[in-house]
Design a protein around this nucleic acid. Structure first.
Length: 386
DNA sequence: CCATTACGACCAAGTACCTG
DNA sequence: CAGGTACTTGGTCGTAATGG
């Protein structure tokens, strides 16, 4: 099995090995062209080996400013993204290309260090409260950092790039939200060399899957070259490189697979599971909405009575305490005439509604624990009259 | 150790409904 | 009917648990 985060181009060439011709040649040509045109993400071999032996991270290779590393033997090697963008579309420098390919080979010889062990929740929490801006994240692929290690700007950069990667993954397999998720071995793939399909029978590291991730990475880098203004200049070096983007592609991967899995499940169980989840989702959202409304109302309540809403609100309102609104029809997927009869008896619905045969109708029954009974609440209010 | 799964939370876009 | 609000839904992410 492949290690999780080899240097991306290494991954790419390994992925290529698993391919049939002519796809292999086509993709190889594509990446070679990319190597000659994109200079952002390929440190030279010296930096590479130095990094792989010293860093404890996931194989991410930060594009060090050339001033910070060794005096760059050849300045073009370490060029940053912006320089690449303004570089003249000169002929590809063969020597340069050769050197970068050597870096790729070096990465095979010196695979990156193992990933750091994940912290427990408690450790993470303690750390984040004690260390506001840990400088120790240097050298770690920013795509792998947890949220509290990123500031607002970087979070939005990550969101943006994640979206870009996602669209490129979708584009490469010609998938749209709502479509059937393609997969090798299911249906016949059109004979289009630009079309890449995932193979969910393999894991995230399967050759086709790697290839897809690499394609998305390249396309985003390509796009960034044409639209550098999308990322603030001071963040480009850190975020716009193949290691980060490939990691983002890997982060999106489980979702693709989830779409695939749920589509298959839906086909096999007739959508029962989907309905059940949808129902739970609706109840949850209803509950959150109710709770949010209560909080909103409490704000005014507190203002009128000179109470601190920051203290009072969390004490009085909790999503879990709101109770649930159920509709018998929608929650179990079957229409219950008994339930309708009882609703009719209480005057909640008309006789027509009771006998209505169409799918769902929107009468909800509020379920809540006994202590939430209105009379209990009224008593409480009389005991604690604010 | 790492990949995968499961699940809750959040968000944004879409839709339904209400009101002036 | 426009504009606003409530509600639904789908997509994504973070992370704990699970499994190989």
């Amino acid at each position: 099995m492949l290690p999780s985060s080899l240097f991306p181009s290494t991954d790419f060439f390994q992925a290529l090995e698993g391919l049939e011709e002519p796809q292999r040649s086509i993709e190889k040509a594509r990446v070679l062209r990319w190597l000659t045109e994109t200079r952002s993400a390929f440190p030279d071999a010296a930096t590479l080996t130095q990094q792989t032996t010293s860093t404890q991270s996931s194989g991410y290779l930060p594009a060090l400013p050339s001033s910070a590393s060794e005096p760059a033997p050849i300045s073009s090697v370490d060029t940053t993204f912006e320089i690449a963008a303004e570089a003249s579309p000169a002929q590809p420098n063969i020597g340069d290309l050769h050197r970068r390919l050597k870096a790729v080979e070096a990465a095979v010889v010196h695979p990156p260090a193992k990933r750091r062990k994940r912290k427990t929740k408690i450790q993470a929490g303690a750390e984040s409260s004690l260390l506001p801006a840990p400088s120790s994240t240097f050298g770690i692929n920013p795509a792998r950092l947890e949220r509290h290690h990123l500031d607002e700007t970087e979070l939005s950069i990550k969101r943006f790039l994640q979206g870009q990667i996602r669209s490129q993954l979708y584009a490469a397999m010609q998938y749209k939200v709502g479509d059937r998720m393609p997969c090798h071995g299911y249906g016949s793939k059109p004979d289009d060399p630009n079309l890449l399909w995932p193979d969910f029978s393999q894991n995230i590291n399967g050759p086709c899957n790697r290839l897809l991730q690499m394609r998305a990475t390249m396309m985003v880098l390509e796009d960034a070259k044409n639209h550098p203004e999308n990322i603030p200049e001071e963040y480009r070096e850190k975020w716009l490189n193949s290691a980060v983007l490939l990691e983002l592609a890997r982060i999106s991967w489980p979702h693709l697979k989830a779409v695939w899995n749920s589509q298959r499940l839906e086909a096999s169980d007739g959508g029962a599971d989907k309905r059940k989840k949808a129902s739970a989702g609706r109840r949850g959202e209803r509950r959150r909405t109710r709770a949010a409304q209560m909080r909103k109302a409490l704000k005014d309540f507190c203002l009128e009575r000179h109470l601190d809403p920051l203290i009072v609100t969390p004490e009085l309102v909790h999503d879990e305490w709101v109770g649930e609104e159920w509709s018998c029809d929608e929650e179990d997927g079957t229409k219950s005439s008994k339930w309708r009869e009882s609703l009719y008896a209480t005057g909640k619905i008309t006789a027509d509604e009771r006998d209505e045969d169409d799918a769902l109708f929107a009468v909800l029954e509020i379920k809540r624990p006994e202590w939430m009974d209105l009379e209990v609440c009224v008593d409480l209010v009389s005991v604690y009259p604010w």
